[in-house]
């Protein structure tokens, strides 16, 4: 019996769910492996009560999200968090720096209460245990297919731990730091094939901090190179809640 899969979205722009429709050639093969019971973006039906694999997109921003995730964890045997929002808190988690309520009133004024039960935006794994994580903004479909395949086979999370530099070197990119420009690749989890850098754009860190990264040394070295490290940290906040990283 094919594993029953649901796809649900929390706080996000649904970009990764849209990305999932871009598997194109492989979509039918992938769909042939699973019994897709609910896809928030594409289904009109309701979430079933019982399923095997839950694919979760988006950050946790409300109490309702927490309740949803707790139900998901109690039901699914495998939970896959997809995209920067779900994996690191992503863009929504930018609001977690500083005073959250002020941000809401700045954007929405004193009008009707938006997002009742709102909480500090955070990653899915800060609420429930996550079995597989596919980082990135948006996710890479090749990686999605590979991770889904691992989940269906019951294999371990194979998330790379090291920073981007190694794969970037194999692409023969000239390092941005040689030109005095900031690139977050040295802190950021690899697995994206250094696509942005290969296209001439520095890494913005969308895959989150790499476990192997040596933050203290990197900041010290950049400082020695005359680079404003507070600027580096501001950039890194786009996809990372750095306070947690430094106390890791």
């Amino acid at each position: 019996m094919a594993p029953r899969v649901v796809v649900i979205g929390l706080a996000s722009d649904f970009g990764c769910q849209v990305q999932m429709t871009n598997i194109e050639d492989d979509l039918l093969d992938v769909l042939g492996l699973i019994d897709l019971q609910y896809w928030q973006l594409a289904s009109s039906g309701h979430m079933p009560d019982s399923y095997d694999v839950a694919i979760v997109e988006g950050a946790v921003t409300t109490l309702e999200h927490i309740a949803t995730l707790e139900r998901v964890r109690a039901t699914a045997s495998a939970v896959i968090a997809i995209g920067a929002c779900a994996v690191t808190g992503g863009i929504p988690a930018l609001a977690s720096h500083g005073r959250l309520e002020e941000r809401y009133s700045l954007v929405y004024g004193d009008g009707p209460s938006v997002a009742p039960g709102r909480i500090k935006p955070q990653a899915v794994d800060s609420v429930i245990d996550v079995d597989y994580r596919i980082p990135g903004c948006p996710i890479d479909m090749g990686e999605f297919v590979q991770v889904l395949s691992r989940a269906l086979q019951g294999l371990s999370d194979h998330l790379p731990q090291e920073p981007l530099c190694a794969i970037c070197k194999t692409k023969e990119n000239v390092c941005f730091y040689e030109r005095g420009e900031v690139c977050l690749g040295v802190l950021t989890r690899t697995g994206c094939d250094a696509r942005c850098v290969s296209l001439g754009r520095p890494c913005t860190g969308c895959r989150g901090l790499a476990e192997d990264a040596n933050l203290e040394s990197a900041l010290r070295l950049l400082d020695e190179r005359g680079i404003d490290t507070s600027d580096v940290l501001v950039r890194a906040r786009l996809y990372n809640t750095l306070e947690e990283a430094f106390t890791r």
Partner: peptide, 26 residues
């Protein structure tokens, strides 16, 4: 920085990892 750049650009580093990748139809 544990980035591994040294190994990649080295003309004599030969270490490798082996990975199986399934086609989408498995």
């Amino acid at each position: 920085l544990s980035c591994g750049a040294c190994s990649m650009v080295c003309p004599t580093c030969y270490c490798f990892d082996v990975i199986d990748r399934l086609e989408p139809d498995q």
